[in-house]
Design a protein around this nucleic acid. Structure first.
Lengths: 152, 152
DNA sequence: ACAAATTATATCGCACGCGATATAATTTAA
DNA sequence: TTAAATTATATCGCGTGCGATATAATTTGT
């Protein structure tokens, strides 16, 4: 039985399970990240810093697909917790350079157990996780490509 | 080269692309939903109502995996816009029954074009979309099952 | 050189999402 | 029956995300 309204049934939307699973995972992270005094978004910022050690805000925003209106207050909070330091780039005074403090760097080892805890709580096979990961990055990469074309 | 920190590299997390794609899609919905005077979350609530016509708040919360602290203010806004009406269940006074107004029901036809607009803006093949959809629902369904077991 | 355009960051206001908690209505149990 | 437990909704406070806009620093064009 075809109904013209079928297209706007919740069950026929890709967006909804994405939204629901994203919320679900962030919820699962919360108790683990509480121990590190981090929110989920602060955690992904810290992951970038743990990896690169030193990043400017623009790169951080691009990497995480966030804008300065989200990043600026978030960095202020991480600075307040003593995990990062901010400094103006001596070359270009517009750029803000973020670096890890000792305490921020120490947090890295405490975070090591987080991914395994999460994967235990997520009911998904390694194959499905791999599949999901790849498909999602296809979307993100395609989007980045379009953005780059538009900014030429 | 294996590094003990590999597990907390952003690129090795499933959560991040999920979060980024979910944000991306909601961002893409915004200009379309603005025309209907709906936010994304309000839109998925309306989808449930368009389908069922009449729902109580608890079912709505369960369907969308949201809690009353998100739903209550949201319903207040939809009521303010004249799209829904709230009434206490005559049987059990704790239950809040939500119904569509005429204006809320009329919105359904205006929303019909939304899914196609979104799918044009998402760079994903129908096969990948199907794959993504199925895998995400595996996670959601497994989660629901666990929740049900816990509430016995 | 210097005004205009561009770029990077910050601010503002709004709407979630969530844990914790409060309130109201119903059910349960002694 | 009536006090305690349970259930459904509401409130509170905080931290995002986001479009729009403002501010500060640099680059560009003439």
């Amino acid at each position: 039985m075809q109904d013209k309204y079928d297209v706007i049934r919740l069950k026929n939307q890709l967006c909804f399970p994405l939204y629901a699973v994203s919320n679900l995972i962030i919820r699962k992270y919360k108790p683990l990240l509480d121990k590190l005094d981090l929110t989920y978004t602060q955690y992904i910022v810290m992951m970038v810093l743990w990896e690169k050690g030193r990043v400017n805000e623009k790169i951080l925003c691009q990497t995480l697909s966030l804008k300065s209106n989200t990043m600026t207050p978030l960095l202020k909070k991480l600075e307040g917790k003593g995990y990062i330091e901010k400094a103006k780039d001596t070359g270009d005074g517009r750029n803000l350079v973020i670096t890890l403090t000792q305490s921020g760097n120490d947090l890295r080892d405490k975070a090591l157990s987080v991914p395994e805890c999460i994967s235990k709580e997520l009911y998904i096979s390694p194959e499905d996780a791999e599949l999901l990961y790849r498909t999602l990055y296809k979307i993100l990469d395609a989007e980045k490509e379009i953005e780059n074309e538009n900014s030429l």
